[in-house]
Design a protein around this nucleic acid. Sequence first.
DNA 1: GCGACAG
DNA 2: ATCTTGTCGC
Length: 228
Amino acid sequence: MAYYRPYNSPPPDPAVMRQLTAQQHEMQQRIIIQKPKFELKLIAGCDSSFIGEDTILSVFVLLTYPELEVVEKVWHHDSVELPYIPGFLAFREAPNLLKAYEKLQQKPDLIMVDGHGISHPRRLGIATHLGLHLNKPTMGVAKKVLVGKYTEPATTKGSLSPLVYKDEVIANVLRTKDNVKPVFVSPGHLMDLEAATEVAMACATKYKLPEPTRLADHYAAVFKQEVK
DNA sequence: GCGACAG
DNA sequence: ATCTTGTCGC
């Protein structure tokens, strides 16, 4: 198994990588992509930032839908164990995100995660990984492609083009704002691409990132300063 | 064998 | 993710 290792991260143990890959193959069997069976009243957005090299701070923001008004925001920080390795992001960030999630007083009907859903080599982007752990509908909104090919969508807001990987459309490259780089929208778990795309568009008000993840990113920066 | 590579 | 200043444009 070949995997990419960022220039400055410690060399991952081959035995560990084999174990994590096996776990993704097991989890892959439980992914459910279907037409949504939930009523979207509350949507959550989550994101993580780092304080130094090994301390992660994760945030969950809860919003009403479709009004998109913030009703709750929580965070949690802890030390991380694994380095960042493309394709294995969830093993590095999901543990802390789950701890932050537990602090929510109310639980969302859907979680929008910063990162990919099934648009991943083994369909296990962090959004899908979280969805399986929480048995909750999730979708991913990433700023950069991980796998697949696509053509640039038109430069006007609302334009989109499919992201294809192994002859399957695994995400939509969506222009959420005029003349701004598009985002990659994919279903994570318990929903499908069509629904994920619809929600992403409905949450794209005046910025590139849909409100849930944009606000989570915003508060991550705010809380980070409070901790320092 | 040579690139590409979420956050 | 993070390190970082000024600068172009709505």
